[in-house]
Amino acid sequence: MPLITGVGWVTVSGMGRGRERNDFAMTKGRLPRIARKSVFDKPHKHFGRMDEFSKLGLAAIAFALKDAGLYEWSEKRDIGIIASTVYGCLHTDIDYFDTVMPEEGQLASPALFSYTLPNCALGEAACHFGLTGACYVINEQQPSGIASLDAAMDGIEFNEFEKALAGICDTGCPPHISLEDKGIPGSAFVVIEKGPESSLTPYGSISLNEGGDIIFNGKRIENLIGLIQECLSESPE
């Protein structure tokens, strides 16, 4: 049965990983500025150039991998990354198009355009951590993160990849666009493994029941936030 072996997040309340703190919460508000040094021990040559959505996703993925003992690597690994998002990189879309308008496109920023696809945030994580499994973004009709968990668990179960990161990532609704505010800003990922590599105690087992519900340690899970809260309710060590 697959196990949750790592948890990492960046939210309005702060950033971190499950084996270091258990005060995870996702609430509305302003996200913290993510400095390279607060995530990576060593210099990261692209981090400063990334858009906020990519920094947010990459940071939470880094914390989750560290929590699972999968941070260090020497050879590429068959780990998938699937993330749910509501607004994706809409802030970056706006920033990019603002470079298009002044001179009929002649000042369009190629650097910003590269980040107008939300899966590029996951691609940054794939490059940095050598992750070669399926890597894509899901937009759910009813945002909960469950679709990403579902896809990650299926992928492991069907041998599409060995391990997976499933999560949510949102920088929030841009203030100048009048959209229904249905996504909480922040990013949170869990690592799912069938055969854990590290000797760390897992948070618990995760499965799908016959009705398609996600069950963690015997409890039905409604959304990804609830899963992480459940993981942290009894810290593994």
Partner: peptide, 19 residues
């Protein structure tokens, strides 16, 4: 069906076709 990432570059394909 199969899906895989190059883990090489965000906008350029892996020259060896890894993914």
């Amino acid at each position: 069906w199969g899906v895989a990432n190059d883990a090489h570059h965000v906008t350029a394909p892996a020259p060896d076709g890894y993914g």
